[in-house]
Computed example of a mutant assay.
Amino acid sequence: MKRNVLKVSTVCVLAALAFPTWAQSPAAAWPTQTVRLVVAYPAGGGVDVFARATAQSLAAIWKKPVVVENRPGANTLIGAEAVARATDGHTLLITTDSTHTVNPHLYSKLPYDATKDFVPITMMVSFDQMLVATPKLPANNLAELIKLAKAEPNKYSYASFGSGSQPHLATEMLKRKAGIEILHVPYRGLPQALNAVMSGEIALTWSGIASIQQQLDTNLLKPIAQAGNHRLPEYPNVPTFAELGYPEVDANVWVGLFAPAAMPAAVAAKIHEDVKTVLNTPDFKASHVTARGFEVRALGGKAFSDAIAAQLTSRAELVRLSGAKVE
């Protein structure tokens, strides 16, 4: 009898060890250790700054440290793969829409399955990007840029954050619709792209307003046109691509929070509610959302999953039309 009891106990212990701690703990007890928040973009960019502010607020709610780890590169593949393979139950991913809605159309083989390897937790915020130029470019608006590019094909270049990133897709669409040729130069992230443009090494790039407002106000960059349906209140004289006759040029970005697929639904729901609380806290919203030109989305659960599925379908056509390819 004792031998049978010992065998049963051993089996139970081994079974417990075979599952990550998050599968054993109720949602209310999560987190039980430091949370690692992987950001698929370089330090210093708009997504990173927003992620760090979010991490600080979540740490206050969870009473556990939330450590931000930047894993940029390869159009977010590096950061996404790191989270897809995580098994500690306390690793999360902050990335943008490209990871789940563009990369599957660009790569014949991904190091992760965009649908099966992640749990979508929260679509946090979204924002439209602005096409900006080096002050050295002899064009001050979209019409002048198109005229210049047509006169001298491939003389000018634009910086993206990698093949399939929003700047890449948007500029390739502009090239197709306007009938111009501008060289594509991929960079590791926004800070590197902006530095290249400000120095005059590259003519053009894209950015959310929060990351470039100081540079615009000090004439280190000049605005060309704004994506989206509305002009920015801060720059009412900068027209949108839509009103200039190029509605297909879309550079809207959302920032989302994901977990590895093994995360229980109850824990994911808890995290979503906590993130939603942070996003709608007046001080946080004023300082880290509105002030950065972002819009709170706070979509979770099925609503977020459905939005990803719809965009995954629509962006297949966008990638095809833009001609974007992995380099």
Rank of each mutant, 00 (worst) to 15 (best):
Thr240Pro: 01
Ser163Ala: 14
Val83Arg: 04
Asp306Phe: 14
Thr277Arg: 15
Lys109Gln: 15
Gly45Asn: 12
Arg320Ala: 15
Trp206Leu: 06
Ala53Lys: 01
Tyr107Arg: 15
Gly293Lys: 09
Val66Lys: 04
Gly301Met: 05
Gln33Thr: 11
Val5Asp: 04
Val39Leu: 12
Trp254Val: 01
Asp117Asn: 13
Leu148Trp: 10
Thr122Val: 14
Ala210Phe: 05
Lys175Val: 00
Pro191Phe: 05
Thr277Ser: 12
Ile224Cys: 08
Leu169Gly: 01
Val38Cys: 02
Thr10Ala: 06
Val249Ala: 10
Pro42Thr: 06
Asn4Trp: 10
Ala60Phe: 06
Ile308Pro: 15
Gly245Met: 04
Ser25Arg: 13
Ser207Lys: 04
Phe50Ser: 04
Gln24Asn: 13
Gln33His: 09
Ala23Glu: 13
Tyr246Gln: 00
Ala29Phe: 13
Tyr41Gln: 14
Ala27Asp: 13
Arg85Pro: 00
Val119Asp: 10
Pro233Asp: 15
Thr101Gly: 10
His100Ser: 08
Ala151Tyr: 02
Pro264His: 09
Glu248Phe: 00
Thr96Gln: 09
Lys285Tyr: 13
Ala86Leu: 11
Ala23His: 07
Val102Tyr: 11
Ala29Asn: 08
Met124Gln: 12
Pro233Leu: 13
Tyr235Arg: 06
Val83Asn: 12
Ala196Ile: 02
Val13Pro: 02
Gln192Val: 03
Thr115Phe: 07
Ser322Ala: 07
Asn141Gly: 00
Thr95Arg: 03
Thr290Cys: 00
Val253Met: 03
Ala28Trp: 13
Leu37Lys: 05
Ala53Trp: 05
Pro191Val: 01
Leu232Met: 08
Gln129His: 13
Ala114Trp: 09
Gly323Ile: 01
Ala225Thr: 09
Asp283Gly: 02
Asn4Lys: 11
Asn140Glu: 10
Gly256Trp: 07
Ala51Thr: 01
Val275Gln: 05
Pro135Gln: 07
Ala114Asp: 03
Ala74Val: 08
Phe241Met: 01
Ile182Met: 07
Pro135Asp: 03
Gln192Glu: 15
Lys150Ser: 03
Asn4Tyr: 08
Gly323Glu: 00
Ser57Gly: 02
Met198Asn: 07
Ser287Pro: 13
Thr171Pro: 01
Lys7Ser: 09
Thr290Asp: 10
